[in-house]
Simulated scan of single mutants.
Amino acid sequence: MKILVTPTSLQPDKNSKALERLKKFSDNLTFNNTGRPLTEEELIPLLKDCDGYIAGLDNITKKVIESCPRLKVISRYGTGTDRVDLKAASEHHIAVTNTPGANAEAVGELAFGLALSIARKIPSLSVRTSKGEWARSTGMELAGKTIGIIGLGAIGRVVARCAQGFSMKVISYDPFMDASYASEHGIEVRSFEELLSQAEIITLHLPLTDQTRHMINSETIQLMKDNVILINASRGGIIDETAACEGLKTGKIGGLGLDAFEKEPPVDSPLLAFDNVVATPHTGAHTKEAAENMAVLAVENLISVLTDQTCPYIVN
């Protein structure tokens, strides 16, 4: 069987445990050597005669899927499937799998790190100190503040644990809220509007869907407290970046932490001109531990589908 492997973190010299397992299954592996996600035009010639596909953040369109008559499984290295045309995959009887929870610790820790960095102005103070300045700047303590977690899945739960370690009050909104988990772990449940109006720090942990796209917009930003810190380590399209830029200008948003952008990389983004914006290159899942966890699970998902075994992580 021929397998295409495109995640930039899953290369022949990395994640040896996962690749050893994959090589035992197939000796016909093709890798992505561009160092970035592949476009539609790049994917088609690589994928057209493959049986399986371990996918990074490539654009897996209907045209790509229709060009691959042998393909049986798209095994996402990660949780999100917003770059996969799930309808087309289903119509062509291609299973799509993902790796939920495998990178939760890594992404959750980064999200909380962004909040702490903004609250204490760590990046900007580091730059000024490196330039020889000895700046005096007043930050904000997190202890006693309220953090609002939108999306209490595996990643949101990591953020909640981190916040409680800093003696923060944790409130959460999730359209599929597990109320028993929240109650057991001291997390107070709120409506979406209540959370926006009560939290000093708001962090987003949702997939990008038609329902969540631009859920943070000019109207919902106005419901927030003044000088709110807003964190997005999920998908860029959840925040309307034009509205966020205006919120930064007016001071409604006191700080913005972004590990995801509507356009990646965010070339010429006006958001990057603000010194209270901390930006990282969609790196939440990029830890040694998370990379290994995702790689192992992505490989196991692919093999399970191709050998007609039960796979619990099929999303379509």
Rank of each mutant, 00 (worst) to 15 (best):
Met1Val: 14
Met1Trp: 01
Leu4Pro: 10
Leu4His: 11
Thr6Tyr: 08
Thr8Val: 15
Thr8Tyr: 07
Thr8Gly: 05
Thr8Phe: 06
Asn15Ser: 05
Ser16Thr: 14
Leu19Tyr: 09
Leu22Asn: 00
Lys23Arg: 10
Ser26Ala: 12
Asn28Gly: 00
Asn28Leu: 11
Arg36Cys: 11
Arg36Gln: 07
Arg36Ile: 02
Glu40Ala: 08
Glu42Val: 05
Leu47Met: 03
Lys48Trp: 03
Asp49Pro: 06
Asp51Phe: 12
Asp51Ile: 08
Tyr53His: 09
Ala55Lys: 05
Glu66Thr: 10
Pro69Ser: 01
Arg70Thr: 05
Tyr77Leu: 02
Thr79Leu: 10
Gly80Gln: 07
Ser90Met: 14
His92Gln: 03
Ile94Gly: 00
Val96Asn: 06
Thr99Ser: 10
Ala102Met: 12
Ala104Ile: 11
Val107His: 00
Leu110Ala: 11
Phe112Glu: 00
Leu116Ile: 08
Arg120Val: 01
Lys121Trp: 09
Lys121Cys: 03
Arg128Gln: 15
Thr129Cys: 02
Gly132His: 12
Trp134Arg: 14
Ala135Met: 14
Met140Phe: 15
Leu142Asp: 04
Lys145Ile: 08
Lys145Gln: 08
Gly151Pro: 11
Gly151His: 07
Val159Ile: 10
Arg161Cys: 01
Ala163Lys: 09
Ala163Arg: 01
Ala163Ser: 03
Phe166Gln: 01
Met168Ser: 00
Lys169Glu: 09
Ile171Gly: 09
Tyr173Cys: 07
Asp174Arg: 02
Asp174Tyr: 04
Pro175Ile: 04
Met177Arg: 05
Asp178Gln: 00
Ala179Thr: 15
Tyr181Lys: 13
Glu184Tyr: 07
His185Gly: 06
Val189Gly: 07
Arg190Gly: 09
Phe192Asp: 04
Phe192Glu: 08
Ser197Trp: 11
Ala199Lys: 06
Ile201Tyr: 04
Leu204Glu: 09
Leu208His: 08
Asp210Leu: 13
Thr212Ser: 15
Ile216Pro: 06
Ser218Val: 09
Ile221Ala: 01
Met224Glu: 01
Asp226Leu: 07
Ala243Leu: 08
Gly257His: 03
Leu258Pro: 04
Asp259Asn: 02
Ala260Asn: 03
Val267Gln: 12
Pro270Phe: 13
Leu272Val: 12
Val277Gly: 08
Val278His: 01
Pro281Tyr: 13
His282Asp: 01
His282Phe: 00
Thr283Lys: 03
Thr283Leu: 14
His286Ala: 13
Thr287His: 01
Asn293Ala: 12
Met294Gln: 14
Val296Asn: 13
Leu297Gln: 13
Ala298Met: 04
Leu306Gly: 02
Cys311Gly: 05
Pro312Gln: 08
Tyr313Thr: 14
Tyr313Lys: 12
Asn316Trp: 08
